[in-house]
Amino acid sequence: MSELIRFENVGKIYKTGSVEYIALHDVNLSIDEGELVVVLGPSGSGKSTLLNLLGGMDTATTGKIFFAQTEITAMDDMKLSQFRAISVGVVFQFYNLVPTLTALENVSLMQDLGISIMDPMDALEMVGLGDKKDSFPSQLSGGQQQRVSIARAIAKQPRLLLCDEPTGALDTGTGREVLKILQDQCRVHKRTIVMVTHNSLFAEVADKVIYVKNGTVVDVKENKEVKDAYDLNW
């Protein structure tokens, strides 16, 4: 498999007044195309910062990040927006749906970006929510909202799908369903998925597990045996 993402000595420092907080320090890693990668670490370890940098949602203070051999750390705001619009899909812990748009409109929102996406209805069908297309987020359960969020992310058929604690707000059963959808996106649709979680069980469904602690990558493990989401002892 070819390399899709590469971090070279990446660091991120947040400043609040005169106070500096080092969120990431000297991170080096590589992710191949089509991999399902789980980033594990305790709360405040820097895993969400890593995800944000990866998706071009934040800018690194030091180092370089490459996506398909293109340095995203050198991109200006406009190019970063294009990069996020075309290449990256994001699934958030709290779904982050636009509350004043229906399920179908939330997915169709991608059309407003001016990029070609799959039929929003097909995307909703893919996550099993075709019958909820006219429901507003407030009329959907947490699991349903997360599935709309996934439909929105996959509708544009991105090469990279970033998931920030995608099951964090869901019960076990619903979480497993969501995890299965994501796993299928990787296995069936050959999408690269990077999933941030503090749930170590998820390591078993990943091709690669990156352990983050105190802002640095402390370990990277590759799984020879990958479990199906429904087989997790969760």
Binding site: M78, Q82, R84, V88, V90
Partner: peptide, 11 residues
């Protein structure tokens, strides 16, 4: 919502 729109790729 604003953060999400930007994360989704809206400039």
């Amino acid at each position: 919502v604003i953060g999400t729109l930007k994360a989704l790729g809206f400039s």
